[in-house]
């Protein structure tokens, strides 16, 4: 028990995490950022006139916005040792619910409120059933994935609901000091996510629960309530993402958010967050999201087929994870030469 506690993130998370906060980027993060820079270079070399222009960077960031915000929530859930397969469906449901004729008739404010509430509500249902109903996260969110999309289809009658409320689309299409509103929201989501994860007790507890839930419980954390809230955060992020999708496509549809769960999990994992929980970084997730967005842009600008793009995507996921393993090993930690990730102390940056 002593040994377990000694290794547990509750113990080391405070000290080690605190000590490490000085390093803004550790080796793994540099490797990941290197991949992103490399991709940008490839894009620039193949399309020098159009790739690194202000317009294209702004387009890429706006495209990254929705999946980026979803990935913030996903990072929380995975660090806390869970998984959320329902994010895409919650995005679909929120986008449909906020664009029904009834919601639109109340104006943009209610539309925004509706998206946030629906997302948060679905997330909390996930969370409370996982925490208090003891349903395995994989199963619970799988069920939500099916039923949220089903409800979205029922509400919309499987039709695309066009937004006639122009105030809404104009607000999200606008720019503040040359920066699109969607990009500002994306940045805010990551800043808030980073602060909550690294500078609050809520964040430290999230790491602790993911690292060792039992130890966290014994040290006095209300693990159940905390778990429920973490899924609530994920749902909330989905609601915000739904807003972004609706603003960009000027429509809500039950087909929105298809495969977001896979994209978000991929971004989180190549960002260096452990699927088993307890360790991860929100900056890594952001880089992961950007890598996929840049990749998409490179392929489109060079007029390449989508099938090759999917192959490259898979290769990058595997490559990034291998890179992290090598980097970790090269750091030559005497304590864990065989590198069993679960037993390493939690680390935030």
């Amino acid at each position: 028990m002593t040994k377990a506690l000694d290794r547990s993130p509750v113990h080391s998370g405070e000290s080690a995490g605190g000590r490490r906060r000085g390093f803004a980027l550790d080796v793994r993060m540099l490797g990941l950022a290197g991949v992103l820079v490399l991709l940008c270079l490839i894009g620039f070399i193949t399309n020098p006139d159009t790739f690194l222009t202000e317009a294209n960077i702004s387009t890429m960031l706006r495209l990254a916005a929705a999946i980026g915000v979803v990935s913030v929530g996903m990072t929380f859930v995975i660090i806390a040792g869970g998984i959320d397969l329902s994010v895409g469906s919650i995005v679909a449901l929120s986008s449909v619910w906020m664009t029904t004729l009834a919601t639109q008739s109340y104006g943009p404010f209610v539309m925004v409120l509706c998206a946030v509430l629906v997302g948060l509500g679905c997330g909390l249902v996930n969370g409370f059933l996982v925490a208090y109903g003891r349903v395995v996260p994989f199963i619970m969110t799988l069920a939500m994935m099916a039923s949220a999309r089903g409800l979205a289809e029922r509400l919309s009658g499987r039709q695309t609901q066009v937004v006639t409320e122009t105030g809404f689309t104009e607000f999200f299409r606008a720019s503040v000091l040359g920066v699109p509103v969607l990009v500002i929201m994306l940045a805010l989501a990551y800043v808030i996510g980073w602060v909550v994860l690294n500078r609050t007790t809520f964040g430290r507890r999230t790491y602790a629960i993911g690292g060792n839930a039992e130890a966290a419980r014994l040290s006095g954390i209300n693990v159940k309530l905390h778990t429920a809230l973490v899924y609530g955060i994920s749902g909330l992020c989905c609601g915000v993402a739904a807003m972004m999708v609706v603003a960009r496509t000027t429509s809500g549809a039950s087909t929105n958010g298809l495969f977001y769960e896979l994209d978000a999990i991929a971004a989180v994992v190549i960002g260096g967050t452990l699927l088993s929980g307890g360790r991860g970084s929100i900056i890594g997730t952001l880089i992961g999201v950007l890598i996929f967005t840049v990749l998409n842009s490179i392929f489109t600008q060079n007029n390449l087929d989508t099938d090759i793009q999917n192959i490259a995507k898979g290769a990058i996921i595997v490559g990034a994870v291998l890179l992290q393993h090598t980097a970790r090993r090269r750091k030559g930690k005497p304590r864990a030469p065989s590198s069993n990730p679960e037993t390493e102390p939690s680390r935030s940056q």
């Binding site: 399309n47 159009t50 222009t53 317009a55 294209n56 387009t59 890429m60 706006r62 495209l63 695309t160 999708v245 960009r248 496509t249 429509s251 549809a253 087909t255 929105n256 958010g257 298809l258 998409n296 842009s297 489109t300 600008q301 060079n302 007029n303």
Partner: peptide
């Protein structure tokens, strides 16, 4: 609609 928006936004940049 979502995929149409995403792909077209990229296409227009290229």
């Amino acid at each position: 609609p979502e995929s149409g928006e995403r792909q077209t936004a990229n296409l227009l940049q290229g």
